[in-house]
Nucleic acid binder design. Structure first.
Lengths: 348, 348
DNA sequence: ATGATGAATGGTCTCGTGTCCATTACTTAA
DNA sequence: TTAAGTAATGGACACGAGACCATTCATCAT
């Protein structure tokens, strides 16, 4: 555990000089530089970033709070963001909130304990951590929200065009002839204030369609709830003819339930999901999906963080909007088709 | 950005007393305690863990190096390990090496720069980082390898019983009548010293089978290489009748290639893969897999770390072996069946 | 009344690095 | 020769918390 002091002693110079060999080597005589470098080599000295950052107040560290690292969307986001931040010599610390502001609060505390310079956050549902986030901002942390930006939040954000994607999904299904469409999750300001389910009813209205109240179910974005919900919806007297899964993980649960009920895609039912995960192209039929530009979103988020942290002059507002919205892409595969004729559907 | 000093000043006590309100409140008068707590509350004071750990040399931080965070096995491992470490108030810092010791070295450097107390490592292939790891151990870091332990490595490890699983896989396929079995990757001491492909030939020999040299291909554990390799193997004059994918990600590539060639599972070909990912049960036919006890392995790894870090008395050697090996579990689904009779197989 | 005991609190130093300013030696122009 | 300037180097301090020892004060037994 050698320090710069040890290096200095070995090289016969002062600690200040020794450190300059690392930070601005031009300032040193070639001879001195060589001596210090030899000492660094011999002791295998490597700076302790904690000590260095203690002074400035912030460490070269960025926190990333995702809902679930097991969800490939977030894993990809984490990977891409880490790559960009790493290039600027920042270290990413990842933690999970499981879509809950309640579980998020201790995670934020931990990150602040490490004095991260910024936090990239997929906000959990709830208000518990709102005040704390604002306090962090007041203390100079750059806070960025991604994937979901709560109503009224004024943090910069990077999100998918959820409303646009939902419109496109509904338009596509309606175009095929579907009118009884259900989303796997219903908006609820308290429990499930999620953007895709929030914008779904409006997307339906835009096409002159309405969502039967019995299709409404407030659920979290997990495989199991999607599984249960799909079973419930399909057991209804007038079941939907098309299902929209809000995440790739939900799609797994929905797919399982559909299989179990002995229904055929797309003959008996159409299924469309967000997230273009590899497996969606592998099942039979391959599933029609809305792909998110994950890499691009992560890059935008990382760059926003770097701009805020590095660039002193606030070019932020001119170069990139505070709230970046990315378009999704509908990839038509085989899981959607025109619905059965009404009379037949009723006999289900 | 308030410090313990600020708290002390506001409460009218010394910094030492103020801190005691957090660390051992019993030592304080009720009145003093209340005053300090009020000050902490008012200033929203939260300790800076960097400063605290500067003294002790190590931070309450553990590094985790995985091959790829997008691979669900590693994501699950990271999640479970983080949960256990969090309970003991450690923070996990995750980074990736993409199966390469070359890319791993800078990651280890970064982790050491943060003065992590321990590192849980899925070693990348190659020798580049070996020396560095040993130096880290000499400096007091606890190093643990998981998923793969290089030949001759004497770090504690937590791995799957790769050899046993391979034996079970081969035995199962052989029991169905297969003799021409290929693994999606061939052992190579330099490029691909991976345990599953390494133990595959021995598993074959144990059953009196041999691996034709033309089945040999040194590849990395990615979807694309598995895809290419599957195509190559199936284009052979005498193609294998059963394929073993070494990871869930490989299985995706293999499945794609099999589909593209218009082959039917399990009629034309049997497929078996490591990793029980959700999608493997969803495709048609559902894929027979070998499941890893990910949670248990992550827990074992995390506890080994905690024992090394916390427990001063070295109960480590008695309670748990230095090298923990976990059994896999064969889950038979629908992707394996007896092979076509030889005459038919030759006409492919 | 005195000394011992122990609880409550404070002072000081340390960790490893970065920043700022001081010092030295050496060069250049007047 | 001297003043000014510059390149190379060193010293002191700050950052925020923990560890350790010192101090104060009240209590109690002798």
């Amino acid at each position: 555990m050698s320090t710069i002091q040890d290096v200095a002693r070995l090289a016969g110079v002062s600690p200040t000089t020794a450190k300059r060999a690392l930070r601005d080597p031009d300032k040193l005589t070639a001879e001195t530089l060589a001596r210090v470098q030899a000492a660094i080599e011999e002791l295998h000295y490597e700076p302790d970033v904690r000590a260095g950052s203690l002074r400035g107040g912030q460490s070269r560290t960025v926190g990333l709070v995702v809902a679930s690292i097991v969800e490939p969307f977030f894993a990809q986001f984490a990977r891409a963001a880490a790559r960009h931040l790493k290039a600027a010599d920042y270290t990413l610390i990842v933690s999970e909130n499981e879509y809950s502001a309640h579980l998020e609060l201790p995670e934020l505390r931990r990150l602040y304990g490490q004095r991260v310079a910024a936090i990239m956050l997929r906000p959990g549902y709830g208000e518990e951590s709102r005040e704390y986030l604002e306090r962090l901002r007041d203390r100079g942390l750059f806070i960025l929200e991604f994937d979901y930006a709560p109503d009224g939040s004024d943090f910069p954000s990077v999100v998918l065009d959820h409303a646009g994607c939902m419109r496109e999904a509904v338009a596509y299904l309606h175009g095929l002839g579907h009118t009884r469409i259900a989303a796997l999750g219903t908006y609820d300001p308290e429990v499930h204030p999620e953007d895709r389910s929030r914008t779904f009813p409006q997307a339906m209205r835009d096409r002159g369609l309405n969502v039967p109240p019995e299709y409404g179910r407030v659920v979290l974005l997990t495989e199991d709830t999607a599984y249960d919900l799909t079973h419930e919806l399909l057991a209804l007297p007038t079941p939907p003819t098309a299902l929209i899964a809000l995440t790739g993980t939900q799609a797994i649960g929905a797919f399982r339930a559909i299989r179990e009920r002995g229904l055929c895609l797309p003959g008996d039912l159409s299924l469309l999901t967000f997230d273009n995960y590899p497996w969606t192209a592998l099942v039979d039929p391959p599933i029609t999906v809305i792909e998110q530009p994950v890499e691009a979103m992560a890059e935008a988020a990382a760059h926003a963080v770097l701009r805020a942290l590095e660039g002193g002059f606030d070019a932020s507002s001119t170069t990139t909007p505070q709230h970046a919205v990315f378009p999704g892409r509908l990839i038509v595969r085989g899981s959607c088709a025109p619905p059965r004729v009404p009379s037949l559907a009723l006999t289900l």
